[in-house]
Computed example of a mutant assay.
Amino acid sequence: MVIKEVIVVEGKDDTFNVKRAVNADTIETNGSAVNESTLTQIKHAQDKRGVIIFTDPDYPGERIRHIVSQAVPGCKHAFLPKREALAKLNKGVGVEHATPEAIQEALAHVYSMSETYESDITQEDLIIFGLVGGSDAKRKREQLGEKLKIGYTNGKQLYKRLIMFQITREEFIVAMEDIGQEEEE
């Protein structure tokens, strides 16, 4: 699998693992303290080839994703489910721990963000499907993020993420019905 865009990752171990899975170039942020030089490099890559942000499914990874997205508009996003990024013996979570197949799957489902998309999904839908406010809401959001390949988010950010990645109400309902059927089995 060849990726034409430059993939933004957190560190050299991520680069090594991504290159085991796909033929791609990477830029490393070297952690969550993304400096101006790195952002300039990412802007240049975005202008020339496009950029895919592919950070760890944890708080620092989301922070880096946010910093880069704000500084470099128009980046695409790939998300790795947390369960696919766990190290053996639960010693960390990250792209560097994922299998080549999990990386290929994540990079095969890349999203572009939209600030202007008008969704027909409502906040009430999130409540009805138990994604906010309930005792099981976090698990359901994790399942939804994995099913839609938009990553995990907390209850406050879920609605924004659904809009940013232009998830239609139909896609949302189908995903929630699938989750419900899986729970029944």
Rank of each mutant, 00 (worst) to 15 (best):
E118F: 00
E170W: 11
Y59S: 12
I163Q: 13
K147Y: 01
N154L: 11
G180F: 09
G11T: 10
T122W: 15
R83Q: 13
K88H: 12
G155C: 05
V22A: 04
V18S: 01
A102L: 12
F129I: 06
L131G: 11
T122C: 15
P60Q: 07
R139D: 02
K4M: 11
D25R: 15
Q41E: 15
G130I: 01
E146P: 00
Y111I: 02
L131V: 09
T26Y: 09
F54Y: 12
Q104F: 01
M113S: 12
V22R: 04
E101W: 08
K19A: 01
D56M: 05
T116M: 07
I3K: 02
M1G: 08
E96S: 14
V110K: 06
I7D: 03
D125W: 13
N23C: 03
T168G: 08
A87F: 12
A85D: 10
E171G: 04
F165A: 01
A71S: 15
E171S: 10
A45V: 06
M164I: 00
P73I: 09
V9H: 03
R139S: 07
E62P: 02
I167D: 04
H109Y: 04
V22L: 02
D125Y: 13
Q123C: 08
V110F: 06
I42S: 14
I150F: 09
E124P: 00
D178H: 06
T116W: 07
V93Q: 08
E5Q: 10
S69W: 06
I173R: 10
I53M: 11
A78Y: 09
G92H: 07
A78D: 07
R169V: 11
A102N: 11
I163T: 13
A33S: 12
V18A: 06
E96C: 10
L144H: 01
Y152E: 04
E101D: 14
S114F: 12
R169Q: 14
T26I: 00
G31L: 04
S37C: 10
F16I: 01
H109I: 05
T15P: 02
V9Q: 00
I67R: 13
I179E: 10
V110W: 03
R161P: 00
K43D: 15
V2H: 07
A106S: 12
Q181I: 00
Q46L: 08
E183P: 00
E146C: 02
K43T: 15
M164R: 08
E10K: 06
K43I: 14
I7N: 02
F16K: 11
Q166C: 14
G130C: 06
I150R: 03
S135K: 09
F129E: 15
I27D: 11
D58Q: 05
A21L: 07
A98R: 09
T122D: 14
G11K: 10
K160N: 12
I150P: 04
Y159G: 07
Q143K: 15
F172C: 02
N154R: 08
Y111A: 05
D125N: 15
V110M: 04
